[in-house]
Amino acid sequence: MSMATSDILLTLAGMALVTYGPRVALWLGNGGGFPPRLRRMLEYVPVAVLSAIVFPIALLHDDKLYLSIHNAYLAGAVAAGLIVWRSKHLLAGIGGGLIVYVAWRLLLS
């Protein structure tokens, strides 16, 4: 079943609104109208969204769990996660994960 272009655009707009709407409201309102607990919870939205994008790509192939030595996506994601965890530098993690992904594809594919 394929979605029409208008359905895809509407879905993307809704996702953007749900993801960034609360953040924009916090920024415009200086966060004063939101309880501190809600503000703390909203700090985890980017991590949750990124996880929802990355995990299926890194862990699934043909809708099945793919934990193989040949899974370059998983190798790159694990490398990026470890680099960011240890260095606390997002750009280093992205670059390192990309290097591991490309090397994995070249060496094992």
Rank of each mutant, 00 (worst) to 15 (best):
A16E: 13
H61M: 03
L107A: 12
W27H: 08
F55M: 12
P36H: 11
S6Y: 10
L82V: 12
I8D: 05
G29Q: 02
G93H: 00
V18G: 04
A75S: 04
A92T: 03
R23P: 00
L106V: 09
A92L: 12
F34H: 04
R40L: 08
Y44S: 07
V78F: 04
D7E: 15
V45C: 06
P35L: 06
L74E: 10
N30Q: 15
Y20S: 01
V54L: 15
A52Y: 13
P36K: 12
G31Y: 07
L38W: 11
A4S: 12
M3H: 14
L107Q: 10
P46C: 07
T11F: 10
I53K: 10
L108V: 10
V78I: 15
A77M: 06
L107R: 14
S6H: 08
L67W: 11
I99S: 00
G21N: 05
S51G: 09
V49G: 04
A52C: 15
G76R: 04
L67E: 03
P46W: 15
M3Y: 14
L65P: 01
L90V: 11
P46R: 12
P56H: 12
L60M: 12
V100L: 07
L38D: 10
L74C: 08
L67Q: 06
L59K: 03
L74V: 05
M41W: 15
R40A: 13
A25F: 10
A77L: 03
A103I: 15
L26D: 10
F34C: 06
Y44T: 07
Y20I: 07
L9D: 05
L98W: 07
F55A: 09
V102R: 06
S51F: 11
L17T: 15
L108N: 03
D62V: 09
Y66H: 14
S87V: 00
L67M: 13
E43L: 05
L82Q: 01
H89I: 05
V78D: 03
L12F: 13
D7W: 14
Y101N: 03
W85C: 02
L9W: 12
G31F: 07
V49L: 05
L26H: 08
L28S: 04
V102G: 04
E43V: 05
R86L: 07
A52K: 04
A16T: 14
N71A: 05
I83Q: 03
K88H: 14
V84C: 02
P22W: 09
L82T: 04
V78Y: 02
K88Y: 06
S2H: 11
L38P: 00
I69V: 11
P46M: 05
D62W: 07
L12M: 14
Y101P: 00
G32V: 10
V24P: 00
I94V: 15
F55D: 03
T19G: 04
L91I: 15
M15P: 00
A103R: 03
I99K: 01
A77P: 00
P56T: 10
A75R: 09
